[in-house]
């Protein structure tokens, strides 16, 4: 069970220290990809609490603030954001299909659907940017302006990170033998993408539907 990195006959203490010192941490007996995935899930759970805190803040402000909406502003337009939502939520299914393709070692199928996910993510970001540009209020216009941009901006940052990760994974798929050691990178990116989606659904309900 212990992958012997040193010749057992070299039972000198010095030698063992030397070798493990050089190789550092790579040669562990444990399932590293499994650890990474576990750690990543733990991290995402923790990260979700930041969003939960912002949501809690939003709810408190919405229910207690005296002047909630900025002067002259009657409410958010929901049509465009709804389309955006549909695109982002569907991309979760698309990325799942990409994963299935990778699973059966169909690399081009994987790349095609992976790229489609990226396109949908980018479309979402574009839609978000257009919406931001046309809004009559800014970040510093009261607690509504503040929480609106904080929530959508922080979420947008996550979408951007997701697309960036997807780009890296796409590039890596061209490295020969990339998946010999497992598909942790792809699985983690995909999980992150689902996470970002779920957050958006809550966010959409809170900000756009509950007006």
């Amino acid at each position: 069970m212990n992958p012997t990195k040193i010749d057992p006959s070299l039972n000198s203490h010095v030698e063992s220290t030397h070798i493990s010192g050089l190789h550092g941490t790579v040669e562990h007996t444990h399932d590293e990809a499994g650890n990474s995935m576990f750690g990543f899930i733990v991290f995402l759970l923790s990260e979700s609490v930041i969003f939960l805190s912002f949501f809690a803040g939003y709810i408190v402000y919405k229910t207690t603030a005296l002047d909630w909406l900025p002067k002259g502003f009657t409410g958010l337009e929901t049509h465009e954001p709804a389309i955006n939502t549909v695109v982002l939520v569907s991309s979760s299914f698309v990325i799942y299909i990409a994963e299935r393709f990778l699973h059966v070692k169909n690399l081009w199928g994987f790349r095609a659907f992976w790229l489609l996910t990226m396109a949908m993510g980018s479309y979402f970001l574009y839609g978000q940017a257009v919406e931001w540009r046309n809004l009559p209020f800014g970040f510093t216009d009261g607690v509504f302006g503040g929480t609106f941009y904080l929530l959508t901006g922080f979420h947008g940052l996550h979408v951007m990170t997701g697309v960036l990760l997807q780009t890296i994974m796409l590039g890596r798929s061209f490295i020969p033998g990339n998946y010999d050691k497992g598909e942790f990178g792809v699985a983690a990116t995909s999980l992150f993408w689902h996470f970002v989606d779920v957050i958006w659904i809550i966010l959409f309900i809170l900000i756009y539907i509950w007006q």
């Binding site: 805190s53 803040g57 970040f139």
Partner: peptide, 20 residues
């Protein structure tokens, strides 16, 4: 993460001028 959320909002209030 809750402290982080609060600290981010405080930092924005302090530097950008939001009003959380």
């Amino acid at each position: 993460p809750a402290l982080t959320a609060g600290a981010v909002m405080l930092l924005l209030d302090l530097t950008v001028g939001t009003s959380f």
